[in-house]
Amino acid sequence: MWKWLHPWAKAEKAYQLCGRLSPWFGIICLGLLVTGSVWGLLFAPPDYQQGESVRIIYIHVPASILSMGAYAAMTIAAFIALVWQIKMSELYIIAVAPIGIGFTLIALLTGAAWGKPMWGTWWVWDARLTSELILLFIYIGILALYNAFEDKNTAGKAVSIFTLVGSINLPIIHYSVVWWNTLHQGATVSKMGKPSMEMSMYWPLLMNIIGFGFLLAYLGCVRMQNQILLREKHRPWVKKMVMEGDNHAV
């Protein structure tokens, strides 16, 4: 049943698959992000309470969702790497982690920039901002752990264990932070109660969320190819491919 999946665990095949998929992901991502952003910035209506500042939502929400989506993808990869001992999965974790850091940074900064006009301060120890911040530190921990090892094979395995440990902890962290927050915080945050969103705001948001998803997929493919090449630099297939690529280019 799983036979058709097996070839993709080989470096060369995985590399080719990424190469074949990435242009499509890139095009779809660009189309969605441009349409969604133009729609969101120019055509979507302002919020009746928050005015034009609501236009931050079109990047804040997609970045926050996909910063967690990236971690979910890494968790699945870590599980596969540990259970079936598939090297490609380990590479995928490391390929995706920097993208996750990027998305988390975006989510944090846009959250702060949205909080300033709405709550009056750049930073509120709001449950979501806090757990996003901790997510950032876990991403950084993953990269630091990977870079600390000389032997990248060991590094990949260590990172997949830590990613899995983190994935068990992240929901716990999230819920404890929510609970801690409701305990400490007054009504400052909850006054941003959400009236059900208008359709004209919903569509550009949805497009940007899916667009960020495809961006994750595109960058994931490109960076995955990089990781494969770095690891397999001295293999004949890489040399052959690079030479052939030169011939095509000439």
């Binding site: 876990i138 950084i140 600390a148 902890n169 962290i173 305990l183």
Partner: peptide, 29 residues
């Protein structure tokens, strides 16, 4: 995770402290 490394000390804190946050929250509360 870091036992094989020469300089694991700071890295351990970086890895472990975020995971300890729930404990801190509930214990202090």
């Amino acid at each position: 995770l870091t036992v094989g490394l020469q300089k694991g000390g700071v890295l351990i804190s970086l890895l472990v402290l975020p995971l300890n946050i729930p404990i801190l929250i509930f214990a202090t509360s």
